[in-house]
Amino acid sequence: MKKYEAVIILNPNLSTKVDLFKKDFEGLLKQNSFSINKTEDIGRRQLSYSINNHNKGHYIIFSIEGNPVNLINIENKIKYDDSIIRHLFISVKNHQGEDSQLMIDSKNKKDDPEAEPTVIKDNEKDVLSNNEKNVTEVANSDNESTGELKQKSEENHENE
């Protein structure tokens, strides 16, 4: 018997199906005679770099214990699951009883929920307004350039 921590990053678009995935995964663990000490559902989190064109991921950490031989079976099944962006099994000496720092951070964020969504909206607005500005600018510059051309052509005629 060995103790492990399984970190799984789920596709953020499937956040509503997290509970389903959890049940499936726990079933898979039980099939392979693994015992679960603790599960930490950390939730959606910004990734430091994009993985498979995803910028956010749903983190779940399982504290599990079982036979190393069976771990290969679990990993083989997880490999071909499309809803999982990335997974890692780490062997640990002892499971931590307390909440991990990631869990604490995500809880603190949930306490002030207004912080994130407003920022995103503002960004979107900026992008939209920028696009509009660009369009108008392009239109203006088109007019100017054609006007200049006309002037030039007139000048040319005069010269002739």
Partner: peptide, 12 residues
């Protein structure tokens, strides 16, 4: 590896 920390500052 778990994308908690960047490898570089050159990530797109």
């Amino acid at each position: 590896f778990l994308a908690l920390i960047p490898y570089t500052d050159m990530h797109k």
